[in-house]
Write a protein that binds this DNA or RNA. Sequence first.
RNA 1: GCCCCGGUAGCUCAGUUGGAUAGAGCGUUCCCCUCCUAAGGGAAAGGUCACAGGUUCAACUCCUGUCCGGGGCGCCA
Length: 589
Amino acid sequence: MKQPLQELLIGAFERLRSQGSVPPDLALDIHLERTRDRQHGDFATNVALTLTRPLKRKPREIADMIIAALPDSGYVTKVEVAGPGFINFFLSPAAYVEQVKQVLASGEAYGRSDLGAGRRVQVEFVSANPTGPLHVGHGRGAAYGAAVADLLAAAGFQVHREYYVNDAGRQMDILATSVWLRYLEMFGEKIRFPSAGYKSENYIFDIAGALYKERGDALRHTAAAVTADLPPDGAADDSGDKEAHIDALIMRAKQLLGEQPYRLVFDRALDSILADIRADLEEFGVVYEEWFSERSLVESGAVERAIQRLRDSGHLYEKDAAWWFRSTDFGDEKDRVVVRENGQSTYFASDIAYHMDKLERGFDRVIDVWGADHHGYVPRVKAALAAIGDDPGRLDVLLVQFAILYRGGQRVQMSTRSGEFVTLRELRNEVGNDAARFFYVMRKCEQHMDFDLDLAKSQSNDNPVYYVQYAHARICSVLRQMHDKVYTLDESLGLEQLTLLQEAHEQDLMVALARFPETIEAAALVHEPHQIAYYLRELATAFHTYYNAHQFLVDDARLRNARLCLIVATRQVIQNGLGLLGVSAPEAM
RNA sequence: GCCCCGGUAGCUCAGUUGGAUAGAGCGUUCCCCUCCUAAGGGAAAGGUCACAGGUUCAACUCCUGUCCGGGGCGCCA
């Protein structure tokens, strides 16, 4: 709807240039916006205001000149100058009628565009370490990332959703070792559990139990062999180093088991947890094109190649037996280690390799959705890309703030350390997938979020999810009533008679429908799914107001079918909008 | 100490990237079902946009400084 108006303005300026009323080299930045107030028409532009200085004329004079030069259009009934020099456009009823027809003709595709022109975008999100179930913080990243990806797809981008699996590294060794120790306990081996291990997590016992069932005593070793000559743990009673202790324990596990059996324990733990995460996300309506393994980067030599590229380009130096990346040359606060004293590459090295790989795969844009606690990590990743000659501007890192749960007006305590965090699955079971998905994206991602569990659960008009879904259900209900009254929907008759819909409520609803495609484009480009949530609430309000003010199933067949066409179009848009957020559109509530 | 995010109605938050009289939901007060689901609608009250400067035709929006809240600053991942 915006596009034709934009073209009219461009046409006007072409005419003004040829007339010599405007210098030929005049730079134009035409901002066309929806008006806040219908008194100001449908769209407004401030070009005249922005041209006061270059043209050295009064804004209202400039506005008059532009209006006089506008080509004719069937979409516009009136154009006027207002306020300090705004140009207001009033669209013709035909323009909105056209939009309703468009909704019904396009169906599920209404709102989609080819703005992205098929450019390839990769969206990496969640990527939680596979060391335990997802918690509510990951849930927000999942809902947000999925919505951003779907929005981009709707805006015509070719989207590749990816989960980066941190299946290499020390944290996973700690996990595997923890499982093995629990497994040994099942044979009655008495081993004091390391304080840095996964001590109180129930799923560790479950995985150990599965291992016991599948492998019997094939992986058994005696407590004495496991604990012999270990450096002391760091618990309160012995002043050892808990990190050194667990590292030694990991070494011991690898030694006693041998490479293959150790790998077996490791993979059993990894597969089990990853399967759980995958199922959790699928139930949440979040699916990926690819699960990308960090280990595959290590094993394929990609990490080594990445380090070599940095070394070749002179950005690495050796200090204290470790290899450092001079990221300060690219704006980072301090230099970062890529190869540790012990010869192991760091997580950061893997991440450099991963991001190199992403760009090599030819994505036009790469989006990472991270928890806000990783913000300090952004400069070093961008630094690495710059160092190897890639364009860090192709990478967008979207930081998602934490969600704080409230129940009964009280903050729900969450502590990862004590293991009493709330899992995503628990949240989904408590409030349902729809409420969880909707609430998670109701806020801008950089906003701290207060997640009110009671509100999310309440089946009342306080709850925005139900409010929107109810509008959809109500329309379905009207159609059921229609059948009961032995009417049928005559769509072609209704579409012919759309001009009968002159009531203010009907006009408002048509405006709301027309705004949907614009809203998707805007939300997609700035990665803000909350705009869709707000839009849907406004659309639902426009419908509920209309519903209360007018009867749809009236005797007059022409008016009845016109109104039914309008609300069927509304139902379609609600369905499309909720779909973008991963929320269902129920036919009855 | 340095860095990131936030501060808008009693509460939770929007504010179309600098535009017209700062908006919505909840809460409060009042009103509307002989009528397609009242899980709805209408009306009222409610504001020094944290504070102070600056930039310009125009600042909640951009710049600088201050105050308050949250988070981050590992050879962890």
